[in-house]
């Protein structure tokens, strides 16, 4: 049972290994706080859609299952949109068009199709948490690298009087700005994937 939860985090990490949900993984990761917000939104939608798909799996006719899943997902995305706009408008602004685009995040439709419509509700919940956390962790890693190199800061959630931004001396005065732009995002993604692949290859070599 626990396997369903842990597999999404490293072994089947949706971003680095399955290469799903790439658009938000690069589009919102110029700041760590955006990655956290996006991750929270995706975990919520994934949880909701996995629960409903696994509950309704015997009622949805085979032929119209994809549109049915899309309606379920879009409803949860609308909830996220409204809640985010009402309570954290600054985050809603900076995520911009990527909030409604959670609907076409292939991770969510992928899990509904590949997992939730074949498994029980308990397993689906664990799967949603595992995949959601794996997705969020991947986003945080990408955002961390990009923000540290590109702006010399790490912005987290503001708590009380602290504005939530850690400034790294030296880097923040002369950052490599390109990392916070589009080109840097693609480069960081490529090198992170290569790094992960390299470490996996080393592990299998050691086993031999």
């Amino acid at each position: 049972m626990l396997k369903e939860f842990t597999k999404g985090i490293i072994k089947e990490n949706p971003v680095f290994v399955l290469a799903l949900g790439l658009c938000p993984a690069l589009g919102v990761t110029s700041k760590v706080v955006n990655a956290l917000g996006m991750g929270a939104g995706v975990i919520f939608v994934l949880l909701g859609s996995n629960i409903f798909v696994s509950l309704l799996k015997n009622f949805i006719p085979e032929k119209v299952r994809i549109p049915a899943y899309i309606v379920i997902i879009a409803s949860f995305v609308t909830i996220v949109e409204m809640v985010m706009e009402a309570f954290i408008p600054s985050l809603y602004e900076s995520l911009g068009v990527f909030v409604p685009l959670i609907v076409v995040n292939c991770v969510i439709l992928g899990r509904a199709e590949a997992f939730a419509n074949k498994n029980t509700i308990g397993a689906s919940i664990l799967d949603a948490f595992g995949m959601g956390i794996g997705f969020t962790l991947a986003l945080i890693v990408i955002a961390f690298v990009r923000e540290v190199l590109g702006a010399g800061t790490v912005s987290l959630v503001p708590i009380g009087s602290w504005d939530g931004v850690i400034t790294i001396p030296g880097l923040s005065t002369s950052p490599a700005r390109v990392f916070s732009l589009a080109a840097g995002a693609l480069l960081v993604m490529g090198y992170l994937q290569a790094l992960l692949k390299w470490s996996n290859m080393r592990k299998t070599e050691v086993k031999k």
């Binding site: 480069l187 490529g190 290859m201």
Partner: peptide, 16 residues
Amino acid sequence: PLRGTPIAFITGGLMA
């Protein structure tokens, strides 16, 4: 380690 998608991303980055 760069074969497949990693090199595609890096190429995309250079195009960007």
